[in-house]
Amino acid sequence: MAKALQSKYVVFGVLTLAVLYFTFPIYWTFASSIKTMEGIHTFPPNLIPQQLTDPIWKNYVEMWTERGFNQFTLNSLTVAVSTTVIVMIFGTLGGYGFSRFRFPYDDYVFIGILGARLLPPIGMLIPFYRLFGELQLLDTRIALITVYTYMNLPLVIWLMRNFFISIPSDLDEAAYIDGATRFQTFKDVILPLAKPGIAASAILVFLFSWREFLFALALTLSPSAKTLPVGAMMMVEDVVVIWNFLAVAGFLAMIPALLFVIIFQRHIVSGLTAGAIKG
Score class of each variant (00 low, 15 high):
130 R>Y: 14
171 L>E: 04
134 E>Y: 12
162 N>M: 00
131 L>I: 14
141 R>C: 11
163 F>K: 06
177 I>T: 11
119 L>M: 08
126 I>C: 00
174 A>C: 10
139 D>A: 00
136 Q>H: 14
183 F>H: 02
151 M>D: 12
171 L>D: 03
164 F>E: 12
145 I>A: 01
121 P>N: 07
176 Y>V: 13
152 N>V: 02
140 T>S: 10
175 A>N: 08
177 I>W: 05
179 G>K: 09
145 I>L: 01
125 L>Q: 04
178 D>F: 03
153 L>M: 07
130 R>W: 12
160 M>W: 01
121 P>L: 01
134 E>D: 15
172 D>C: 00
129 Y>K: 04
130 R>D: 15
172 D>I: 06
143 A>K: 01
136 Q>A: 09
165 I>A: 05
151 M>G: 13
136 Q>F: 11
153 L>C: 03
137 L>C: 02
178 D>T: 06
154 P>T: 02
158 W>I: 09
150 Y>T: 15
153 L>N: 06
150 Y>H: 13
182 R>N: 09
184 Q>G: 12
125 L>R: 04
164 F>M: 07
120 P>A: 04
178 D>P: 07
174 A>F: 06
173 E>L: 02
125 L>G: 03
122 I>P: 14
125 L>T: 12
137 L>D: 08
143 A>M: 05
154 P>Y: 01
115 G>C: 05
154 P>A: 02
141 R>P: 15
156 V>A: 00
150 Y>F: 14
139 D>M: 02
147 V>T: 11
176 Y>N: 08
162 N>W: 03
146 T>K: 08
156 V>S: 00
149 T>F: 13
168 P>W: 00
157 I>G: 00
183 F>R: 06
171 L>H: 01
117 R>N: 12
176 Y>M: 10
159 L>A: 03
123 G>H: 10
137 L>F: 05
182 R>M: 10
182 R>K: 12
163 F>I: 08
165 I>F: 07
155 L>V: 12
134 E>Q: 12
149 T>E: 10
168 P>G: 01
167 I>R: 01
150 Y>W: 15
132 F>D: 07
169 S>N: 13
143 A>N: 10
171 L>P: 04
124 M>H: 05
133 G>P: 15
174 A>G: 07
169 S>Y: 13
148 Y>R: 00
154 P>R: 00
132 F>N: 05
156 V>R: 01
143 A>R: 06
129 Y>Q: 11
167 I>Y: 01
132 F>W: 03
166 S>D: 15
166 S>R: 05
136 Q>I: 11
155 L>F: 15
138 L>W: 05
130 R>E: 15
170 D>N: 07
160 M>K: 01
178 D>M: 02
164 F>K: 02
181 T>Q: 03
162 N>K: 03
144 L>Y: 06
158 W>E: 10
150 Y>S: 15
184 Q>M: 10
160 M>L: 04
157 I>Q: 02
121 P>K: 01
126 I>W: 01
134 E>T: 14
137 L>E: 09
132 F>Q: 04
179 G>V: 07
